[in-house]
Design a protein around this nucleic acid. Structure first.
Length: 489
DNA sequence: GCTGATGCGTC
DNA sequence: GTCGGAC
DNA sequence: GTCCGACGACGCATCAGC
């Protein structure tokens, strides 16, 4: 499909806000398109195919007569993301620009800014595809869940998919639970939750491939794990890669000699059979028969106290928390349902707001990202522990913005520094060493729990208190902690 | 060769 | 990753 | 219930500019 032609479609999509109309447009376009064109189309509209680029280069003359097609654009952009260096990137973008007319450039700029911005994403594309291939909505969703990407949905519908082994599916996700009281199951699994790297392991008995949470092939990054999975038949497993007793931050460091290990918590495919429609209970049995030594530590119970006990044990051993799972649940790829629940350790401290950034998009009108600080040891100076934009409602943003604006001591345009005055109760999941902040530490997953109107700034915590609350020393020295790191606030 | 900026991956 | 909000 | 936008922390690779 000529790019020029596609841009016409894109403009039509932008012109209407009607979902029905959009689907109609997509349907007609898809129907007329060839297979490669269809794939290019769903990729450009439904995925983030464009790499980001900060400085837009000028058009670079290129002696090339052929008119740009959508397919060429997509393959070029995909190639860029993989291999191209920055200078190379700019050259490629420049060349593409040179070959585009005004309207094509307009579209391309939108694309480079992150998204095509025509109000179409996976959901609508899926519906339109369904109409083209004469499939019901539920059927399409089913296929999409299993295949993971729209491209693979198309191949599936064309009868060219069906390859199960070595084509990754989206891993099942979990929702958060904040207390053990809320566990909704009569009987449930409680498993250790490991703070590592999600891994989907495929094997046909000889070859092994490992995929990340985002379906990237990470086989080559963990050679020491391959031999665990050969000679045991055909299967797909779901698990977590980690190194015992080290923090997530250390796990991310590449230059260490330490060996990775893996724990498995699910099996999705075994010797020719997809197991996603088998109950977890059954899958667990199969997994245990196949890899007894690699199964995640777990208990099966009806008692919430057991869960709590297991949670404490998990923390003691340096894990992140526990997962609670319904033994009767299916494996639903890509879904964040209520069949899997996670309960993680959280810490709470009182911090002072020392600055804020203006928001973007729907938060444009508010100061929406707050700089958080605690006292240094002598309570002489406030030192920053990172920032957060999470936890406040729209209403609270409004109030906070006005309040902070009245306290500005330095206005830098995109952000302001304010006189310390606002104290917040902040929840976070881990204290990390920071190369960036003057405190030397940063909070991971920080969010504001509430504004402490009742507290003066000198009642905020010191760095020493933050360290102690988060059990930082405990974990790095490997000694166990009895502190009240809890999920129940 | 160093430093800071930028992009992308993990969570 | 988390969170609030929109659908 | 589910999805989406708005953004957090780090480490690593790359590269521009010195």
């Amino acid at each position: 499909m000529k790019l020029r032609k596609f841009v016409e479609v894109w403009k039509k999509l932008r012109e209407t806000t009607s979902k029905k109309e959009k689907i109609q447009i997509l349907k007609e376009t898809l129907r007329k398109a060839s297979l490669p064109e269809r794939i290019a189309l769903v990729k450009i509209l439904g995925e983030r195919v464009a790499p980001s680029i900060t400085h837009l280069p000028p058009p670079v003359p290129v002696f090339f007569k052929e008119e740009l097609t959508l397919e060429e654009l997509v393959t070029t952009l995909e190639g860029m993301k993989k291999t191209a260096k920055r200078t190379e990137r700019e050259k490629i973008v420049g060349e593409l620009l040179y070959r585009m007319n005004r309207e094509e450039r307009e579209f391309f700029l939108h694309l480079l800014s992150g998204e095509p911005e025509c109000g179409v994403r996976e959901g609508m594309l899926l519906e339109a595809l369904g109409e083209v291939y004469g499939k019901k909505k539920e059927e399409m969703e089913e296929i999409f869940l299993r295949e993971g990407t729209l491209e693979r949905v198309i191949l599936h519908l064309e009868g060219k998919g069906g390859e199960v082994l070595f084509s990754p599916l989206k891993p099942m996700l979990a929702s958060s639970l904040h207390s053990f009281e809320e566990i909704p199951f009569l009987e449930f699994y409680v498993e250790y939750k490991i703070d590592g790297i999600r891994a989907q392991v495929h094997s046909d008995g000889k070859r092994v491939k490992i995929f990340s949470r985002n379906l990237r092939d990470i086989t080559g990054e963990f050679p020491e794990l391959h031999s665990l999975f050969t000679g045991k038949g055909e299967f797909i497993l779901d698990g977590e890669i980690f190194i015992p007793r080290i923090t997530f931050q250390e796990l991310m460091r590449k230059d260490k000699e330490k060996t990775h290990t893996i724990r498995i918590f699910d099996i999705i495919y075994l010797n020719g059979e997809m197991l996603d429609k088998r109950e977890l209970r059954e899958r667990r049995k199969m997994l245990e028969a196949l890899f007894p030594e690699l199964v995640i530590p777990y208990v099966l119970t009806r008692k919430k106290e057991d869960a709590e006990r297991f949670f404490k044990q998990a923390l003691k051993e340096g894990f992140e928390g526990v997962m609670i799972k319904d033994p009767h649940s299916f494996y639903i790829p890509g879904r964040r349902g209520s069949h899997w629940l996670k309960i993680k350790r959280v810490y709470t401290v009182d911090l002072v707001v020392i600055g804020a950034e203006w928001g973007h998009g729907r938060r444009k009108k508010w100061l929406s990202n707050y700089y958080l600080a605690c006292w240094d040891e002598r309570k002489e100076r406030l030192v920053q522990l990172g920032k957060t934009f999470k936890g406040l409602s729209d209403e609270e943003f409004e109030v906070m913005t006005q309040r902070l604006l009245s306290m500005v001591v330095k206005d830098e345009g995109w952000r302001v520094w304010v006189q310390p005055g606002v104290v917040c109760e902040v929840e976070f999941e881990e204290l990390q060493r920071s190369p960036k902040y003057d405190s030397g530490y940063a909070l991971r997953f920080a969010r504001i729990k509430r504004i402490r109107e009742d507290k003066e700034i000198w009642e905020a915590d010191t760095i020493k208190e933050v360290l102690s609350v988060s059990g930082f020393w405990d974990r790095s020295t490997g000694t166990s902690s009895d502190r009240k790191s809890t999920s129940e606030g």
